[in-house]
């Protein structure tokens, strides 16, 4: 054993920042780890390069049209997909935040301890359901119900800008958004639950000691202290929503049209790529790859914002 010949103090052996072990300790696993690291860098590099290079002709020939154009086939226009992605994920986010915030607060503060774990587990199990199941559920269960009850209900409220329930056929921006909302709910609830559980107990006790009611503790102390982290949770959920493919493809109708009437079909980047790929010629593929790059940029941006929020929340709590 080579390690026996070198006397490394026990406390120093795993010291962080001590990245260079003495030569005698450098053994096969160092090389395995290095190889894994290089492989990882290589694979990710190749991945990005291949996607960008496949779409390169589109960026050279019609960089503007792919972002602002609305047709598909001559020049390729991605505006309907980009707008559709933003529409569905933002509507989904609004629904998920309203429902999820209430759920997370109830789990942490309101329901009895015995129910707490069960509810939290159920919410997290929702995340484990494959998205195809959500898609089929949206198409076969939610869509008929919405056609029969929800669209007419919204109609009766006079929300004509959404479209008319008489013309609606089922697949729609609204349907896809609601399915998405259910899908991103678990991630939003579980992160929000953690963020609000991390609000220090002594702040809660301080509020109570000043005569705050339980509701005031939640609204005036817990939520303000956790708000940055809740923003982070929302953006993480948003990132998940922008990239969701199959459930949206099944429920949105997938037509290449900028759709402002939410009762009617539209499309998103991810669902458009998935459905159009089958019959795509080489030019189509370049355009689809370009859409893929746009989606990657959106998702990456949203994820980065989410990380920034969560890092800031950590800093806030570290100062408390």
């Amino acid at each position: 054993m080579t390690t026996n010949t070198v006397q490394v103090p026990r406390s120093r052996r795993f010291a962080v920042g001590d990245s260079k072990p003495p030569t005698a300790e450098r053994s096969w696993y160092t090389y395995v780890l290095a190889a894994a690291w290089i492989l990882f860098l290589g694979v990710s590099g190749l991945f990005f390069w291949s996607i960008v290079s496949k779409s390169l002709p589109v960026w050279q020939k019609q960089a503007g049209t792919i972002i602002t154009g609305t047709g598909w086939g001559g020049p390729y226009g991605g505006l309907p997909m980009i707008i559709g992605t933003l529409q569905t994920s933002l509507i989904a986010l609004v629904i998920a935040v309203v429902v999820g915030l209430g759920t997370a607060i109830s789990i942490v503060f309101l329901i009895p301890a015995r129910l707490r774990l069960i509810t939290a587990t159920i919410v997290e199990l929702l995340a484990a359901i494959p998205s195809i199941v959500y898609g089929v559920w949206g198409l076969l269960v939610l869509s008929p119900w919405m056609l029969a009850h929800f669209y007419p209900f919204l109609d009766s409220l006079g929300l004509t800008f959404l479209g008319s329930s008489n013309i609606a056929t089922g697949p729609s921006i609204l349907l896809a958004s609601i399915v998405l909302a259910v899908m991103i709910l678990p991630i939003f609830v579980s992160i929000t639950r953690e963020v609000i559980s991390a609000v220090p107990q002594d702040l809660i006790e301080a509020s109570l000691s000043l005569g705050a009611t339980r509701w005031q503790v939640i609204s005036k102390t817990v939520l303000p202290t956790a708000r940055i982290g809740i923003m982070g949770a929302a953006f993480l959920a948003l990132a998940r929503a922008t990239g969701e493919t199959v459930a949206v493809a099944l429920t949105i109708g997938t037509i290449s049209k900028v759709q402002w009437h939410f009762f009617y079909p539209g499309t998103t980047i991810a669902s458009w790529i998935a459905t159009a790929f089958g019959e795509a010629n080489s030019n189509d593929i370049q355009a689809l790859m370009a859409l893929g790059v746009i989606l990657m940029v959106i998702s990456l941006g949203v994820s980065l914002i989410s990380r920034w929020f969560i890092a800031r929340q950590r800093k806030i709590l570290a100062k408390v």
């Binding site: 006790e205 301080a206 202290t225």
Partner: peptide
Amino acid sequence: VTELRTRVGMVFQRPNPFPTM
């Protein structure tokens, strides 16, 4: 209980002003 706590105040071990205020 809320009236009691306005009449009997408390100061804790760790200084804990509300961080967002």
